[in-house]
């Protein structure tokens, strides 16, 4: 009799324990804030922006297109590297090409401005890892500074006379109409040249992307073109 009572007490305790521990909960991480990249000093690709862009953009903007990326994503943009380059005969734009998009506000709204292979949407997409306000500020600062690779500064300017020839060979066809030629509301050729963005890296990138991928510019040619644009062309625009 005594043993039976003990068993009943044990069962009651187990049932009580089971009832007390009954719970239903799922921690989905939905309430967690986004991971934030903090940068000390001037933001450059090598000082924080590379880490930030790879973390918040590079999981989709990679070559070849990752399965996680939308099907209609641009297929020539790899934000896991800085340099625009040629891979298997195709120009693959790097992060040196995105300064203008940031400058034009793609972090806040769609920027249907330049001719491209897809209709650009606000970045990151709503389900992507959000940028914090501090990160947006860093990206804008980086863009305004010409999206530099590092703090080393630009190499010395080159020969302006060589640059003059290259400019009329490759650039003047688009960049000769003030703020550019609007073909329609979504397509503008030749937006105004922004002095801070006229870097030798950017010049080489644009040459590959838009002018002549079969004949990349050398470092000397990029320096010459930069010297002509910054020292002769832009100061003398009406």
């Amino acid at each position: 009799m005594y043993g039976t009572t003990n068993k009943q007490v044990a069962v009651c305790l187990l049932l009580l324990l089971t009832g007390l521990t009954a719970c239903s909960d799922a921690d989905t991480l939905g309430d967690e804030p986004p991971r934030e990249v903090v940068i000390n000093g001037a933001p450059t690709w090598e000082n924080g922006i590379g880490e930030l862009v790879q973390l918040k953009c590079g999981y989709c903007h990679a070559v070849p297109r990752p399965p996680i990326a939308p099907e209609n994503i641009v297929t020539d943009l790899d934000l896991n590297t800085y340099d625009t380059r040629i891979v298997d005969g195709q120009v693959i734009r790097g992060a040196d090409s995105i300064g203008r998009w940031i400058y034009d506000g793609i972090l806040d709204q769609a920027v249907p401005y330049y001719d491209d292979t897809s209709q650009p949407r606000q970045m990151p997409l709503d389900y992507g890892t959000p940028l914090t306000e501090a990160e947006k500020g860093l990206l804008l600062t980086w863009s305004e500074a010409g999206a530099p690779r590092n703090a080393a500064g630009e190499p010395p300017p080159g020969d302006k006379s060589v640059g003059l020839g290259l400019y009329f060979q490759g650039c003047d066809g688009c960049h000769n109409i003030g703020d550019g030629l609007a073909l329609d509301e979504n397509t503008v050729f030749g937006p105004a040249l922004r002095p801070a963005a006229v870097t030798q890296a950017k010049i080489k990138s644009m040459w590959l992307e838009r002018i002549n991928p079969s004949e990349p510019l050398s470092d000397d040619q990029a320096a010459a073109l930069q010297a002509y644009i910054l020292e002769d062309l832009l100061p003398n625009l009406p």
């Binding site: 921690d27 989905t28 991480l29 939905g30 967690e32 804030p33 986004p34 991971r35 934030e36 973390l55 999981y59 996680i68 990151p124 389900y127 992507g128 890892t129």
Partner: peptide, 14 residues
């Protein structure tokens, strides 16, 4: 840092 997350971690967890 512990609480910060990425979209991939959230999608995987879901």
């Amino acid at each position: 840092l512990v609480g910060q997350t990425t979209f991939q971690e959230q999608a995987d967890r879901l």
